Simulated scan of single mutants.
Amino acid sequence: MNLPEPLIASLAGGTLVPYLGPGVLAVAPDYPVPASPEALVAQLTARVSVPHKIRNRLTQAAQFIENFKHRKTLVEQMNAAFAATPVPGALHAWLAAQGFPLIVDTWYDGAMAAALQARGDAWGEVQGLSQSEHFGQWTGWYDAAGEAVGEPAAVWQTVLYKPIGSRRPAANYLVSDADYVEVLTEIDIQTPIPVRVQALRSDRNFLFLGCRFNDQLARSFARQIMKRSSHMHWAVLAEAPTRMEARFLQEQNITPIAASLEAFVAVLTACQRDVARVAGAMASAT
């Protein structure tokens, strides 16, 4: 398998934005946390009884727990589910080493943050906040040490954007129906998306890894986070897209790459020679 030449050019030109879904944990060496919405809701409902008809629906099950057991119980259950930090895999380490200005990570684990921390470069993160716990505040910024900061530092080489929150450093979660309703009410006008992220995504190409778009929430978040970026993107999909996924990919100019994530990561992490070749050609052209 060869990488698409435009993707290599985006890497060489520094215009690529990795967009990670829960599926990236499947290529990590150790992931003792739920690696899909289905696995997460199974863990939540194993601990708290919910009605049968919603036991396989993450946001609805989380809303039931919040309504009948209190928000504190839901947060405690999420904390337990993501208590362990997965060992960063080859993909996480490679991404951390590239110095991407922006990495989007749409799961609650800390593997990508751990890889950035191990790399040692200046970085920080911004997480989406639940309105039930932080009314009127859409996001929280944290430095590499996990300390809350008012705004991103100019010296940060990479901003890690966790739009639905993370276990660390402050147990922020968008997971229940109410959490998402609040955000989706405002996301069309971009209010929940940090200005720094909006600037960093401008005219850039997104590479979707470990993501599926067979859920309306996943499509809505991706669509709004991509807004005002470039006209060319890619998504690695091991399985043929569903009808709704195919429509979304076409609508957003996302080219599917038919490959397992494992195979793609192996090629991606070995492509430095091609990136150097294209970078040299781009330099010569200017």
Rank of each mutant, 00 (worst) to 15 (best):
G150N: 10
E151Y: 01
A153Y: 01
A153P: 04
A154Q: 13
A154F: 06
V155A: 14
V159T: 11
L160V: 08
Y161R: 07
K162C: 10
P163K: 04
R167P: 11
R168A: 12
P169T: 08
P169L: 09
P169A: 07
A170S: 14
A171Q: 15
N172V: 14
Y173R: 09
Y173K: 09
V175S: 15
V175R: 12
S176Y: 03
D177F: 03
D177R: 13
D177C: 12
D177Q: 15
A178R: 13
A178H: 11
D179Q: 12
V181R: 14
V181P: 11
V181M: 13
V181W: 06
V181F: 10
V183R: 14
V183F: 09
L184K: 10
L184P: 10
T185V: 10
T185C: 13
E186N: 14
I187F: 00
I187H: 03
I189L: 10
T191G: 00
P192R: 06
P192T: 07
I193F: 10
V195G: 04
A199W: 03
L200D: 02
L200N: 03
L200T: 05
L200H: 01
R201L: 08
S202V: 13
S202E: 13
D203S: 05
R204T: 11
R204A: 09
R204P: 08
N205E: 10
L207G: 03
L209F: 02
L209C: 03
L209I: 05
G210A: 08
G210S: 10
G210D: 06
F213N: 00
N214A: 15
Q216W: 15
L217V: 15
R219A: 07
S220T: 15
S220L: 13
F221N: 04
F221E: 05
A222V: 04
R223H: 11
I225Y: 01
I225G: 00
K227H: 08
K227F: 07
S229R: 04
S230A: 09
H231F: 08
H231D: 10
M232T: 15
M232Y: 00
M232L: 11
W234A: 02
A235I: 00
A235W: 00
V236P: 01
V236I: 01
L237F: 04
L237G: 03
A238V: 01
A238W: 06
A238D: 07
E239Y: 03
P241N: 07
T242K: 07
T242F: 02
T242S: 15
T242V: 06
R243H: 13
E245Q: 13
E245D: 09
A246H: 07
A246Y: 05
R247W: 10
L249F: 06
L249I: 05
Q250A: 15
Q250V: 10
N253E: 05
I254A: 04
I254M: 05
I254H: 02
P256G: 05
I257K: 00
I257H: 01
I257V: 07
A258E: 08
A258F: 03
L261C: 02
L261T: 02
E262G: 09
E262T: 15
E262H: 14
A263I: 09
V265D: 02
A266H: 09
V267N: 03
A270F: 05
Q272F: 09
Q272N: 14
Q272V: 11
R273Y: 04
R273N: 09
D274L: 12
V275A: 09
V275P: 08
V275S: 10
A276T: 08
A276Q: 12
R277N: 11
R277Y: 06
A279N: 03
A281V: 10
A281Q: 13
A281S: 12
M282F: 00
A283Y: 06
A283G: 11
